[in-house]
Design a binder for these strands. Structure first.
Length: 562
RNA sequence: CGGGAAAUGGCUCAACUUGGUAGAGCACUUCGCUUGGGACGAAGGGGUUGCAGGUUCAAAUCCUGUUUUCCCGACCA
Protein backbone atom coordinates (compact mmCIF):
# COMPACT_ATOMS: atom_id res chain seq x y z
CA UNK A 1 0.00 0.00 0.00
CA UNK A 2 1.24 3.45 -0.90
CA UNK A 3 0.37 5.93 1.78
CA UNK A 4 0.06 8.78 -0.68
CA UNK A 5 -2.85 6.98 -2.33
CA UNK A 6 -4.51 5.50 0.72
CA UNK A 7 -6.95 6.11 3.50
CA UNK A 8 -4.44 6.62 6.25
CA UNK A 9 -4.48 8.94 9.22
CA UNK A 10 -3.02 9.25 12.68
CA UNK A 11 -3.86 11.63 15.48
CA UNK A 12 -1.43 13.93 17.23
CA UNK A 13 -3.41 14.33 20.42
CA UNK A 14 -4.38 11.63 22.88
CA UNK A 15 -7.96 10.46 22.63
CA UNK A 16 -9.92 12.20 25.34
CA UNK A 17 -12.44 9.43 25.79
CA UNK A 18 -10.11 6.46 26.14
CA UNK A 19 -9.18 5.16 29.55
CA UNK A 20 -6.49 2.64 28.67
CA UNK A 21 -3.08 2.75 27.05
CA UNK A 22 -4.13 0.27 24.38
CA UNK A 23 -7.40 2.03 23.62
CA UNK A 24 -5.63 5.34 23.30
CA UNK A 25 -2.86 3.99 21.07
CA UNK A 26 -5.29 2.13 18.84
CA UNK A 27 -7.39 5.26 18.38
CA UNK A 28 -4.38 7.51 17.93
CA UNK A 29 -2.84 5.26 15.32
CA UNK A 30 -6.06 5.30 13.31
CA UNK A 31 -6.86 1.62 13.85
CA UNK A 32 -10.18 2.00 15.62
CA UNK A 33 -12.71 4.70 16.42
CA UNK A 34 -15.39 4.64 19.06
CA UNK A 35 -18.93 5.22 17.81
CA UNK A 36 -20.79 4.54 21.04
CA UNK A 37 -19.83 3.46 24.47
CA UNK A 38 -18.28 0.02 23.97
CA UNK A 39 -18.79 -0.04 20.19
CA UNK A 40 -15.98 0.57 17.72
CA UNK A 41 -15.30 0.96 14.03
CA UNK A 42 -12.29 -0.97 12.81
CA UNK A 43 -10.48 1.24 10.35
CA UNK A 44 -8.48 -0.38 7.53
CA UNK A 45 -5.31 -0.65 9.58
CA UNK A 46 -7.04 -2.06 12.66
CA UNK A 47 -9.15 -4.34 10.53
CA UNK A 48 -6.01 -5.95 9.13
CA UNK A 49 -4.79 -6.71 12.64
CA UNK A 50 -8.15 -8.12 13.62
CA UNK A 51 -8.23 -10.36 10.54
CA UNK A 52 -4.68 -11.54 11.09
CA UNK A 53 -5.54 -12.60 14.61
CA UNK A 54 -8.68 -14.32 13.35
CA UNK A 55 -6.66 -16.18 10.77
CA UNK A 56 -4.18 -17.47 13.31
CA UNK A 57 -7.08 -18.65 15.42
CA UNK A 58 -8.70 -20.22 12.37
CA UNK A 59 -5.53 -22.03 11.34
CA UNK A 60 -5.01 -23.52 14.77
CA UNK A 61 -8.65 -24.52 15.14
CA UNK A 62 -8.59 -26.21 11.75
CA UNK A 63 -5.35 -27.91 12.63
CA UNK A 64 -6.98 -29.25 15.80
CA UNK A 65 -9.69 -30.78 13.65
CA UNK A 66 -12.49 -28.32 14.36
CA UNK A 67 -14.84 -27.30 11.54
CA UNK A 68 -15.87 -23.74 10.88
CA UNK A 69 -19.44 -22.69 10.24
CA UNK A 70 -21.51 -19.55 10.60
CA UNK A 71 -24.46 -18.93 12.87
CA UNK A 72 -27.00 -16.11 12.66
CA UNK A 73 -26.66 -13.30 15.15
CA UNK A 74 -30.31 -12.36 15.12
CA UNK A 75 -32.03 -15.00 17.19
CA UNK A 76 -35.51 -15.72 18.41
CA UNK A 77 -35.60 -15.46 22.18
CA UNK A 78 -37.24 -18.89 22.19
CA UNK A 79 -33.75 -20.30 21.65
CA UNK A 80 -32.74 -19.15 25.12
CA UNK A 81 -36.10 -19.89 26.68
CA UNK A 82 -35.68 -23.55 25.88
CA UNK A 83 -32.39 -23.81 27.73
CA UNK A 84 -33.67 -21.67 30.57
CA UNK A 85 -31.02 -19.02 30.11
CA UNK A 86 -33.23 -16.11 29.11
CA UNK A 87 -33.47 -15.00 32.72
CA UNK A 88 -29.86 -15.87 33.31
CA UNK A 89 -28.67 -13.24 30.88
CA UNK A 90 -31.23 -10.72 31.96
CA UNK A 91 -30.46 -7.18 30.88
CA UNK A 92 -27.11 -8.06 29.36
CA UNK A 93 -28.91 -9.47 26.33
CA UNK A 94 -29.79 -7.02 23.57
CA UNK A 95 -33.48 -7.60 22.93
CA UNK A 96 -35.68 -6.43 20.12
CA UNK A 97 -38.98 -7.27 18.48
CA UNK A 98 -39.78 -8.07 14.90
CA UNK A 99 -42.68 -6.43 13.02
CA UNK A 100 -45.15 -8.94 14.44
CA UNK A 101 -43.89 -8.08 17.88
CA UNK A 102 -42.17 -11.42 18.35
CA UNK A 103 -39.20 -11.27 20.71
CA UNK A 104 -35.72 -11.50 19.23
CA UNK A 105 -32.24 -10.99 20.59
CA UNK A 106 -28.75 -10.37 19.33
CA UNK A 107 -26.79 -13.48 20.19
CA UNK A 108 -24.58 -13.11 23.28
CA UNK A 109 -23.29 -16.69 22.95
CA UNK A 110 -24.33 -19.68 20.94
CA UNK A 111 -24.42 -22.92 22.95
CA UNK A 112 -28.08 -23.45 22.13
CA UNK A 113 -27.68 -23.04 18.37
CA UNK A 114 -24.69 -25.32 18.22
CA UNK A 115 -26.69 -27.97 20.02
CA UNK A 116 -29.33 -27.60 17.32
CA UNK A 117 -26.64 -27.86 14.67
CA UNK A 118 -25.12 -30.93 16.30
CA UNK A 119 -28.55 -32.54 16.51
CA UNK A 120 -28.68 -32.59 12.71
CA UNK A 121 -25.98 -35.23 12.79
CA UNK A 122 -25.98 -37.02 16.13
CA UNK A 123 -27.92 -40.28 16.25
CA UNK A 124 -25.44 -42.82 17.54
CA UNK A 125 -22.15 -43.02 19.37
CA UNK A 126 -20.50 -43.48 15.98
CA UNK A 127 -21.35 -39.89 15.10
CA UNK A 128 -18.92 -38.40 17.61
CA UNK A 129 -16.61 -36.81 18.51
CA UNK A 130 -16.56 -33.60 16.52
CA UNK A 131 -15.95 -29.93 17.12
CA UNK A 132 -17.71 -26.99 15.47
CA UNK A 133 -16.70 -23.37 15.65
CA UNK A 134 -17.39 -19.95 14.25
CA UNK A 135 -15.71 -16.59 14.31
CA UNK A 136 -18.34 -13.91 14.51
CA UNK A 137 -19.77 -11.06 16.48
CA UNK A 138 -21.27 -11.37 19.91
CA UNK A 139 -23.56 -8.80 21.47
CA UNK A 140 -23.61 -8.16 25.18
CA UNK A 141 -25.08 -5.15 26.87
CA UNK A 142 -22.30 -4.92 29.42
CA UNK A 143 -22.93 -3.00 32.61
CA UNK A 144 -19.91 -0.83 32.10
CA UNK A 145 -17.98 -1.03 28.85
CA UNK A 146 -14.47 0.31 29.30
CA UNK A 147 -10.75 -0.01 28.63
CA UNK A 148 -10.90 0.36 24.87
CA UNK A 149 -11.34 -3.02 23.21
CA UNK A 150 -11.12 -4.90 26.49
CA UNK A 151 -14.74 -4.63 27.52
CA UNK A 152 -17.03 -3.86 24.62
CA UNK A 153 -20.61 -4.58 23.69
CA UNK A 154 -20.08 -5.88 20.16
CA UNK A 155 -17.03 -7.99 19.53
CA UNK A 156 -15.66 -10.71 17.36
CA UNK A 157 -15.32 -14.00 19.15
CA UNK A 158 -14.21 -17.45 18.19
CA UNK A 159 -16.51 -19.90 19.89
CA UNK A 160 -16.08 -23.62 19.53
CA UNK A 161 -18.19 -26.48 20.83
CA UNK A 162 -17.15 -30.10 21.15
CA UNK A 163 -19.50 -33.06 21.22
CA UNK A 164 -18.49 -36.35 22.82
CA UNK A 165 -20.05 -39.57 24.04
CA UNK A 166 -18.67 -39.47 27.56
CA UNK A 167 -16.52 -37.68 30.03
CA UNK A 168 -13.26 -39.40 28.99
CA UNK A 169 -13.79 -38.52 25.39
CA UNK A 170 -14.70 -34.93 26.33
CA UNK A 171 -11.43 -34.78 28.18
CA UNK A 172 -9.55 -35.61 24.99
CA UNK A 173 -11.44 -33.00 22.99
CA UNK A 174 -10.76 -30.50 25.74
CA UNK A 175 -7.05 -31.25 25.70
CA UNK A 176 -6.93 -30.70 21.94
CA UNK A 177 -8.42 -27.26 22.39
CA UNK A 178 -6.06 -26.58 25.27
CA UNK A 179 -3.10 -27.29 22.99
CA UNK A 180 -4.61 -25.24 20.15
CA UNK A 181 -4.95 -22.33 22.56
CA UNK A 182 -1.32 -22.58 23.59
CA UNK A 183 -0.35 -22.47 19.91
CA UNK A 184 -2.61 -19.49 19.25
CA UNK A 185 -1.46 -17.37 22.16
CA UNK A 186 2.18 -18.15 21.48
CA UNK A 187 1.78 -17.15 17.85
CA UNK A 188 0.12 -13.82 18.60
CA UNK A 189 2.96 -13.06 20.96
CA UNK A 190 1.15 -12.76 24.27
CA UNK A 191 2.58 -13.18 27.73
CA UNK A 192 -0.14 -15.24 29.42
CA UNK A 193 -1.02 -17.58 32.26
CA UNK A 194 -3.53 -20.42 32.31
CA UNK A 195 -5.66 -20.32 35.43
CA UNK A 196 -8.56 -22.21 36.99
CA UNK A 197 -11.74 -20.22 36.74
CA UNK A 198 -15.40 -19.94 37.56
CA UNK A 199 -17.90 -21.71 35.34
CA UNK A 200 -20.34 -18.79 35.69
CA UNK A 201 -23.42 -18.61 33.51
CA UNK A 202 -21.98 -21.22 31.17
CA UNK A 203 -22.25 -23.91 33.81
CA UNK A 204 -20.43 -27.22 33.74
CA UNK A 205 -17.70 -28.89 35.70
CA UNK A 206 -14.36 -27.31 34.78
CA UNK A 207 -13.22 -24.01 33.43
CA UNK A 208 -9.80 -22.65 32.67
CA UNK A 209 -8.86 -19.24 31.38
CA UNK A 210 -6.00 -17.94 29.31
CA UNK A 211 -5.10 -14.64 30.90
CA UNK A 212 -2.90 -12.01 29.29
CA UNK A 213 -0.70 -10.61 32.01
CA UNK A 214 -1.01 -6.83 32.29
CA UNK A 215 -1.77 -4.28 34.98
CA UNK A 216 -4.70 -3.07 32.91
CA UNK A 217 -6.37 -6.42 33.50
CA UNK A 218 -9.67 -6.66 35.30
CA UNK A 219 -9.04 -10.07 36.81
CA UNK A 220 -6.83 -10.95 39.73
CA UNK A 221 -4.77 -14.09 39.29
CA UNK A 222 -3.48 -16.10 42.21
CA UNK A 223 -0.09 -17.55 41.33
CA UNK A 224 2.54 -19.67 42.99
CA UNK A 225 6.00 -20.16 41.52
CA UNK A 226 6.89 -23.06 43.75
CA UNK A 227 4.22 -25.39 42.45
CA UNK A 228 2.63 -23.69 39.40
CA UNK A 229 -0.66 -23.17 41.17
CA UNK A 230 -2.63 -20.67 39.09
CA UNK A 231 -6.18 -19.63 39.70
CA UNK A 232 -8.54 -16.76 39.17
CA UNK A 233 -9.15 -15.21 42.59
CA UNK A 234 -12.86 -15.84 42.06
CA UNK A 235 -12.41 -19.54 42.60
CA UNK A 236 -9.10 -19.75 44.41
CA UNK A 237 -9.26 -21.77 47.56
CA UNK A 238 -8.04 -19.99 50.66
CA UNK A 239 -6.82 -22.13 53.51
CA UNK A 240 -7.80 -20.93 56.99
CA UNK A 241 -5.05 -19.34 59.06
CA UNK A 242 -4.13 -20.86 62.41
CA UNK A 243 -4.16 -18.52 65.36
CA UNK A 244 -2.50 -18.82 68.76
CA UNK A 245 -4.55 -20.78 71.27
CA UNK A 246 -6.18 -18.66 73.93
CA UNK A 247 -8.22 -19.38 77.02
CA UNK A 248 -11.87 -18.75 76.13
CA UNK A 249 -13.29 -15.72 77.92
CA UNK A 250 -16.94 -14.79 78.26
CA UNK A 251 -18.50 -12.28 75.98
CA UNK A 252 -18.82 -8.63 76.93
CA UNK A 253 -21.04 -5.90 75.52
CA UNK A 254 -18.89 -2.89 74.83
CA UNK A 255 -19.74 0.60 73.63
CA UNK A 256 -18.02 1.52 70.37
CA UNK A 257 -19.40 4.95 69.48
CA UNK A 258 -19.52 5.71 65.75
CA UNK A 259 -17.28 2.77 64.92
CA UNK A 260 -18.97 1.40 61.79
CA UNK A 261 -16.11 0.00 59.83
CA UNK A 262 -13.63 -2.69 60.74
CA UNK A 263 -10.90 -0.07 60.71
CA UNK A 264 -12.77 2.19 63.11
CA UNK A 265 -13.59 -0.64 65.48
CA UNK A 266 -10.05 -1.99 65.48
CA UNK A 267 -8.66 1.50 66.10
CA UNK A 268 -11.13 2.18 68.86
CA UNK A 269 -10.57 -1.13 70.66
CA UNK A 270 -6.86 -1.17 69.80
CA UNK A 271 -6.94 -4.67 68.39
CA UNK A 272 -5.82 -5.99 64.99
CA UNK A 273 -8.30 -6.76 62.20
CA UNK A 274 -7.89 -10.52 62.55
CA UNK A 275 -9.36 -10.36 66.05
CA UNK A 276 -12.60 -9.07 64.57
CA UNK A 277 -15.28 -10.94 62.69
CA UNK A 278 -17.12 -9.11 59.96
CA UNK A 279 -20.81 -9.84 59.46
CA UNK A 280 -22.22 -9.08 56.03
CA UNK A 281 -25.85 -9.59 55.14
CA UNK A 282 -26.44 -11.09 51.70
CA UNK A 283 -29.68 -11.85 49.97
CA UNK A 284 -30.57 -14.54 47.50
CA UNK A 285 -33.80 -14.54 45.53
CA UNK A 286 -35.73 -15.83 48.54
CA UNK A 287 -33.71 -15.46 51.72
CA UNK A 288 -31.19 -13.46 53.74
CA UNK A 289 -27.89 -14.81 55.03
CA UNK A 290 -25.41 -13.41 57.52
CA UNK A 291 -21.90 -14.19 56.32
CA UNK A 292 -18.98 -14.11 58.72
CA UNK A 293 -15.31 -13.71 57.85
CA UNK A 294 -12.26 -12.48 59.73
CA UNK A 295 -12.09 -8.69 59.90
CA UNK A 296 -9.11 -8.42 57.60
CA UNK A 297 -10.71 -10.59 54.92
CA UNK A 298 -13.17 -9.91 52.12
CA UNK A 299 -16.11 -12.05 51.13
CA UNK A 300 -15.74 -13.83 47.82
CA UNK A 301 -19.17 -13.63 46.26
CA UNK A 302 -18.46 -16.29 43.66
CA UNK A 303 -17.59 -18.83 46.32
CA UNK A 304 -20.44 -17.69 48.53
CA UNK A 305 -22.93 -18.10 45.75
CA UNK A 306 -21.54 -21.58 44.99
CA UNK A 307 -21.93 -22.56 48.65
CA UNK A 308 -25.50 -21.31 48.73
CA UNK A 309 -26.34 -22.65 45.29
CA UNK A 310 -27.83 -19.33 44.27
CA UNK A 311 -26.91 -15.90 43.01
CA UNK A 312 -26.16 -13.53 45.85
CA UNK A 313 -26.34 -9.79 46.31
CA UNK A 314 -25.37 -7.59 49.21
CA UNK A 315 -28.49 -6.53 51.15
CA UNK A 316 -29.43 -2.86 51.03
CA UNK A 317 -28.81 -0.57 54.00
CA UNK A 318 -32.53 -0.51 54.76
CA UNK A 319 -32.71 -4.31 54.77
CA UNK A 320 -29.67 -4.57 57.02
CA UNK A 321 -31.12 -2.11 59.46
CA UNK A 322 -34.44 -3.92 59.53
CA UNK A 323 -32.77 -7.29 60.13
CA UNK A 324 -30.27 -6.14 62.76
CA UNK A 325 -32.31 -3.37 64.40
CA UNK A 326 -29.16 -1.29 64.22
CA UNK A 327 -27.35 1.00 61.83
CA UNK A 328 -25.11 -0.59 59.24
CA UNK A 329 -21.78 -1.43 60.85
CA UNK A 330 -23.08 -3.12 63.96
CA UNK A 331 -24.35 -6.41 62.56
CA UNK A 332 -23.33 -9.57 64.38
CA UNK A 333 -24.35 -13.23 64.64
CA UNK A 334 -25.61 -13.21 68.23
CA UNK A 335 -29.41 -13.41 68.48
CA UNK A 336 -29.78 -12.82 64.77
CA UNK A 337 -32.87 -14.31 63.14
CA UNK A 338 -31.51 -15.25 59.75
CA UNK A 339 -29.33 -18.10 58.55
CA UNK A 340 -25.66 -17.75 59.40
CA UNK A 341 -22.77 -18.91 57.22
CA UNK A 342 -19.31 -18.78 58.73
CA UNK A 343 -16.05 -18.87 56.90
CA UNK A 344 -13.93 -21.90 57.84
CA UNK A 345 -11.23 -19.62 59.21
CA UNK A 346 -13.60 -18.33 61.88
CA UNK A 347 -13.54 -21.87 63.33
CA UNK A 348 -9.94 -21.22 64.37
CA UNK A 349 -10.69 -17.93 66.07
CA UNK A 350 -11.19 -17.30 69.79
CA UNK A 351 -12.20 -14.26 71.80
CA UNK A 352 -13.11 -12.18 68.80
CA UNK A 353 -15.20 -9.07 68.32
CA UNK A 354 -18.54 -8.95 66.52
CA UNK A 355 -21.28 -6.36 66.08
CA UNK A 356 -23.97 -6.45 68.74
CA UNK A 357 -26.96 -5.69 66.49
CA UNK A 358 -27.28 -2.54 68.52
CA UNK A 359 -26.12 0.83 67.24
CA UNK A 360 -22.76 1.84 68.73
CA UNK A 361 -22.15 -1.51 70.46
CA UNK A 362 -19.96 -4.52 69.76
CA UNK A 363 -19.42 -7.74 71.69
CA UNK A 364 -15.85 -8.59 72.63
CA UNK A 365 -14.43 -11.98 73.66
CA UNK A 366 -16.98 -13.80 71.55
CA UNK A 367 -16.52 -17.50 70.82
CA UNK A 368 -18.28 -19.98 68.60
CA UNK A 369 -20.48 -21.29 71.43
CA UNK A 370 -22.02 -17.84 71.75
CA UNK A 371 -24.13 -18.20 68.61
CA UNK A 372 -25.60 -20.79 66.29
CA UNK A 373 -24.54 -21.13 62.69
CA UNK A 374 -26.00 -23.04 59.79
CA UNK A 375 -23.06 -23.65 57.51
CA UNK A 376 -19.27 -23.58 57.40
CA UNK A 377 -17.59 -22.89 54.06
CA UNK A 378 -14.63 -21.21 52.45
CA UNK A 379 -16.23 -17.91 51.44
CA UNK A 380 -13.26 -15.54 51.67
CA UNK A 381 -10.92 -14.05 49.15
CA UNK A 382 -7.34 -15.18 49.27
CA UNK A 383 -4.87 -12.35 49.91
CA UNK A 384 -1.43 -11.71 48.54
CA UNK A 385 1.10 -13.43 50.82
CA UNK A 386 -1.33 -16.11 51.97
CA UNK A 387 -0.15 -19.68 51.74
CA UNK A 388 -0.60 -21.56 48.50
CA UNK A 389 -3.60 -23.91 48.67
CA UNK A 390 -1.62 -26.48 46.78
CA UNK A 391 1.92 -26.50 48.20
CA UNK A 392 1.85 -24.30 51.29
CA UNK A 393 4.37 -21.71 50.09
CA UNK A 394 3.43 -18.07 49.54
CA UNK A 395 1.22 -17.00 46.65
CA UNK A 396 1.31 -13.68 44.81
CA UNK A 397 -1.10 -11.75 42.60
CA UNK A 398 -0.95 -10.58 39.01
CA UNK A 399 -3.59 -8.83 36.99
CA UNK A 400 -4.84 -10.36 33.78
CA UNK A 401 -7.15 -9.91 30.82
CA UNK A 402 -9.18 -12.98 30.02
CA UNK A 403 -8.47 -13.62 26.36
CA UNK A 404 -9.63 -17.18 26.10
CA UNK A 405 -11.50 -19.76 28.09
CA UNK A 406 -12.33 -23.41 28.07
CA UNK A 407 -15.35 -25.00 29.71
CA UNK A 408 -16.34 -28.57 30.26
CA UNK A 409 -20.09 -28.24 30.04
CA UNK A 410 -20.71 -31.97 30.50
CA UNK A 411 -24.39 -32.68 29.88
CA UNK A 412 -25.81 -29.36 31.02
CA UNK A 413 -27.06 -28.28 27.59
CA UNK A 414 -27.67 -31.71 26.12
CA UNK A 415 -30.06 -32.32 29.00
CA UNK A 416 -31.86 -28.99 28.84
CA UNK A 417 -32.08 -29.21 25.05
CA UNK A 418 -32.43 -32.98 24.88
CA UNK A 419 -29.44 -33.95 22.77
CA UNK A 420 -29.09 -37.71 23.05
CA UNK A 421 -27.44 -40.57 21.22
CA UNK A 422 -27.77 -44.32 21.15
CA UNK A 423 -24.81 -46.20 22.60
CA UNK A 424 -23.60 -49.67 21.58
CA UNK A 425 -25.99 -51.25 24.09
CA UNK A 426 -28.92 -49.54 22.39
CA UNK A 427 -29.34 -47.18 25.35
CA UNK A 428 -30.00 -43.44 25.11
CA UNK A 429 -27.38 -41.15 26.64
CA UNK A 430 -26.81 -37.44 26.86
CA UNK A 431 -24.00 -35.92 24.83
CA UNK A 432 -20.98 -34.46 26.64
CA UNK A 433 -20.13 -30.96 25.53
CA UNK A 434 -17.28 -28.52 25.89
CA UNK A 435 -17.19 -24.91 24.83
CA UNK A 436 -14.19 -22.77 24.04
CA UNK A 437 -14.11 -19.01 23.54
CA UNK A 438 -11.50 -16.54 22.39
CA UNK A 439 -12.08 -12.78 22.29
CA UNK A 440 -10.38 -11.45 19.17
CA UNK A 441 -10.38 -7.72 20.03
CA UNK A 442 -9.17 -8.56 23.49
CA UNK A 443 -6.13 -10.22 22.01
CA UNK A 444 -5.53 -7.08 19.97
CA UNK A 445 -5.83 -4.85 23.05
CA UNK A 446 -3.74 -7.16 25.23
CA UNK A 447 -0.93 -7.33 22.71
CA UNK A 448 -0.86 -3.53 22.60
CA UNK A 449 -0.91 -3.32 26.39
CA UNK A 450 2.10 -5.59 26.50
CA UNK A 451 3.97 -4.16 23.52
CA UNK A 452 4.24 -0.39 23.43
CA UNK A 453 6.56 2.43 24.36
CA UNK A 454 6.52 6.22 24.44
CA UNK A 455 6.44 6.30 20.62
CA UNK A 456 3.56 3.93 20.06
CA UNK A 457 2.60 0.34 19.42
CA UNK A 458 5.18 -2.37 18.74
CA UNK A 459 3.32 -5.15 16.92
CA UNK A 460 4.75 -8.65 16.82
CA UNK A 461 5.46 -9.70 13.21
CA UNK A 462 2.65 -12.25 13.32
CA UNK A 463 -0.20 -9.75 13.63
CA UNK A 464 1.26 -6.42 12.53
CA UNK A 465 -1.01 -4.70 10.00
CA UNK A 466 2.05 -4.57 7.73
CA UNK A 467 5.32 -6.29 8.47
CA UNK A 468 7.47 -3.84 6.55
CA UNK A 469 7.32 -0.08 6.13
CA UNK A 470 9.44 1.71 3.55
CA UNK A 471 10.19 5.34 4.37
CA UNK A 472 11.38 7.62 1.61
CA UNK A 473 13.24 10.53 3.17
CA UNK A 474 12.53 12.91 0.33
CA UNK A 475 9.64 11.97 -1.91
CA UNK A 476 10.76 14.64 -4.38
CA UNK A 477 14.16 13.06 -4.86
CA UNK A 478 13.86 11.04 -8.04
CA UNK A 479 16.56 8.56 -7.26
CA UNK A 480 15.17 7.81 -3.81
CA UNK A 481 11.69 7.36 -5.21
CA UNK A 482 12.88 5.13 -8.02
CA UNK A 483 14.58 2.73 -5.62
CA UNK A 484 11.71 2.89 -3.16
CA UNK A 485 9.11 2.01 -5.77
CA UNK A 486 11.30 -0.73 -7.11
CA UNK A 487 11.78 -2.20 -3.67
CA UNK A 488 8.10 -1.84 -2.85
CA UNK A 489 7.06 -3.77 -5.96
CA UNK A 490 9.69 -6.40 -5.39
CA UNK A 491 8.68 -7.05 -1.78
CA UNK A 492 4.99 -7.03 -2.63
CA UNK A 493 5.56 -9.58 -5.37
CA UNK A 494 7.53 -11.74 -2.96
CA UNK A 495 4.46 -11.87 -0.75
CA UNK A 496 5.48 -9.49 2.02
CA UNK A 497 2.98 -7.15 3.69
CA UNK A 498 4.52 -3.83 2.92
CA UNK A 499 3.59 -0.16 3.00
CA UNK A 500 5.43 2.62 1.26
CA UNK A 501 5.43 6.03 2.89
CA UNK A 502 5.80 8.20 -0.20
CA UNK A 503 3.89 11.15 1.23
CA UNK A 504 5.31 14.58 0.73
CA UNK A 505 6.07 14.95 4.40
CA UNK A 506 9.17 15.65 6.40
CA UNK A 507 11.07 12.58 7.60
CA UNK A 508 10.14 13.15 11.23
CA UNK A 509 6.46 12.82 10.44
CA UNK A 510 7.05 9.55 8.62
CA UNK A 511 9.23 8.05 11.33
CA UNK A 512 6.78 9.02 14.02
CA UNK A 513 3.86 7.49 12.17
CA UNK A 514 5.73 4.23 11.53
CA UNK A 515 6.48 4.01 15.22
CA UNK A 516 2.98 4.99 16.30
CA UNK A 517 1.29 2.35 14.16
CA UNK A 518 3.91 -0.17 15.19
CA UNK A 519 5.31 -1.49 11.91
CA UNK A 520 8.00 -3.95 13.06
CA UNK A 521 10.48 -3.61 10.18
CA UNK A 522 11.38 -0.19 8.80
CA UNK A 523 13.44 0.31 5.70
CA UNK A 524 14.63 3.87 5.13
CA UNK A 525 15.72 5.09 1.73
CA UNK A 526 17.65 8.34 1.89
CA UNK A 527 20.75 10.05 0.56
CA UNK A 528 22.89 6.94 1.07
CA UNK A 529 21.04 5.30 -1.80
CA UNK A 530 23.58 6.96 -4.07
CA UNK A 531 26.14 4.64 -2.45
CA UNK A 532 23.64 1.80 -2.82
CA UNK A 533 22.97 1.70 0.92
CA UNK A 534 19.71 1.69 2.84
CA UNK A 535 18.86 1.52 6.49
CA UNK A 536 16.92 -1.31 8.11
CA UNK A 537 15.51 -1.25 11.61
CA UNK A 538 13.69 -3.97 13.55
CA UNK A 539 11.19 -2.71 16.11
CA UNK A 540 13.01 -0.30 18.44
CA UNK A 541 16.45 -1.82 17.94
CA UNK A 542 19.36 0.17 16.51
CA UNK A 543 19.08 0.71 12.77
CA UNK A 544 21.73 -0.85 10.57
CA UNK A 545 23.03 0.28 7.20
CA UNK A 546 23.19 -2.40 4.52
CA UNK A 547 23.68 -2.82 0.78
CA UNK A 548 20.48 -2.35 -1.18
CA UNK A 549 20.79 -5.71 -2.89
CA UNK A 550 21.38 -7.58 0.38
CA UNK A 551 18.01 -6.42 1.71
CA UNK A 552 15.98 -9.46 0.81
CA UNK A 553 18.51 -11.73 2.41
CA UNK A 554 18.39 -9.67 5.58
CA UNK A 555 14.58 -9.65 5.59
CA UNK A 556 14.52 -13.41 5.28
CA UNK A 557 16.88 -13.66 8.21
CA UNK A 558 14.72 -11.39 10.37
CA UNK A 559 11.51 -13.23 9.51
CA UNK A 560 13.04 -16.55 10.43
CA UNK A 561 14.76 -15.36 13.55
CA UNK A 562 11.94 -13.39 15.14
C1' C B 1 -28.95 1.03 37.93
C1' G B 2 -26.44 4.26 41.94
C1' G B 3 -22.41 8.37 43.02
C1' G B 4 -18.97 12.37 40.57
C1' A B 5 -17.28 15.30 36.01
C1' A B 6 -17.90 17.00 31.13
C1' A B 7 -20.19 18.34 26.17
C1' U B 8 -17.69 24.78 22.10
C1' G B 9 -14.74 24.10 13.90
C1' G B 10 -11.81 17.41 12.19
C1' C B 11 -8.54 17.06 17.08
C1' U B 12 -6.91 19.32 22.01
C1' C B 13 -8.70 23.34 24.56
C1' A B 14 -10.03 28.93 25.88
C1' A B 15 -14.16 32.42 26.51
C1' C B 16 -18.92 30.93 31.12
C1' U B 17 -17.62 33.12 37.59
C1' U B 18 -19.32 39.03 36.17
C1' G B 19 -24.92 37.65 29.65
C1' G B 20 -23.38 41.98 24.61
C1' U B 21 -23.53 37.53 19.30
C1' A B 22 -17.03 32.75 19.55
C1' G B 23 -11.01 32.39 19.87
C1' A B 24 -6.06 29.76 20.01
C1' G B 25 -2.80 25.60 18.76
C1' C B 26 -2.82 21.43 15.63
C1' A B 27 -5.15 19.64 11.11
C1' C B 28 -7.06 21.45 6.15
C1' U B 29 -6.64 24.72 1.15
C1' U B 30 -3.30 27.87 -2.11
C1' C B 31 1.59 29.90 -3.00
C1' G B 32 6.66 30.04 -1.60
C1' C B 33 10.51 27.65 0.87
C1' U B 34 12.16 23.06 3.23
C1' U B 35 13.31 17.14 3.37
C1' G B 36 17.49 11.95 8.32
C1' G B 37 13.08 12.88 13.71
C1' G B 38 6.09 15.92 14.21
C1' A B 39 9.88 22.89 9.85
C1' C B 40 8.97 28.03 8.34
C1' G B 41 6.46 32.46 5.89
C1' A B 42 2.12 34.60 3.55
C1' A B 43 -2.95 34.30 2.32
C1' G B 44 -7.49 31.47 3.13
C1' G B 45 -11.86 27.97 4.24
C1' G B 46 -14.52 25.84 8.21
C1' G B 47 -18.47 26.37 14.37
C1' U B 48 -26.97 28.40 14.46
C1' U B 49 -21.42 26.37 21.28
C1' G B 50 -24.99 18.18 22.35
C1' C B 51 -30.51 18.68 22.15
C1' A B 52 -35.29 20.96 23.89
C1' G B 53 -37.61 24.54 26.62
C1' G B 54 -37.40 29.00 29.81
C1' U B 55 -35.52 34.01 31.77
C1' U B 56 -33.80 38.55 29.06
C1' C B 57 -33.72 44.08 24.70
C1' A B 58 -29.73 40.33 24.27
C1' A B 59 -27.70 33.49 26.11
C1' A B 60 -21.81 29.47 24.67
C1' U B 61 -22.53 32.15 29.41
C1' C B 62 -28.21 32.17 33.94
C1' C B 63 -32.49 28.40 35.02
C1' U B 64 -35.17 23.60 33.94
C1' G B 65 -35.39 19.18 31.44
C1' U B 66 -33.09 15.67 28.25
C1' U B 67 -29.27 12.94 25.58
C1' U B 68 -24.36 11.43 25.15
C1' U B 69 -19.40 10.69 26.91
C1' C B 70 -15.79 9.97 30.84
C1' C B 71 -14.42 8.47 36.03
C1' C B 72 -15.68 5.29 40.82
C1' G B 73 -18.69 0.42 42.74
C1' A B 74 -22.25 -5.09 40.97
C1' C B 75 -20.78 -9.04 34.29
C1' C B 76 -17.57 -11.82 30.91
C1' A B 77 -14.18 -13.22 25.50
Amino acid sequence: MKLSESFFYTLREDAKDEDSRSGNLLVKSGMIKKTSNGIYMYMPLGYRVLKKIENIVREEMDRAGAQELEMPHLLSQDVYKESGRLDNFGPSMFKLNDRYNRPFALGPTHEELFVKAAAMKIRSYKDMPFNLYQIGNKYRDEVRPRLGLIRVREFSMKDAYSFDIDSDSLDKSYQKMYQAYINIFNRVGLDYKIVKADTGVMGGSLSEEFQAITDTGEDILVLCDTCDYASNIEVSKCLPRKFEKEEKLSKQLEETPNAHTIEEVSNYLKIPGYKLVKTLIYKTSDDFYACLVAGDRDINETKLSKSLGSEVELASFEEVERITNALVGFAGPIDLNIKIIIDDEVLNMTNFVVGANKTNYHYTNVNLDDFKYDMVADIKNIKEGDICPSCGKRIYFKKGIEVGNLFKLDTKYSESLNLQYLDSNNKLNYVYMGCYGIGIPRIMASVVEQNNDEFGIIWPLSIAPYKIGIVVISSKDEEQMKYALDLYEKLKNSGYDVILDDRNERPGVKFNDMELIGIPIRITIGKKISENKVEIKYKREEAILIEYNKLEEELKRIMEEK
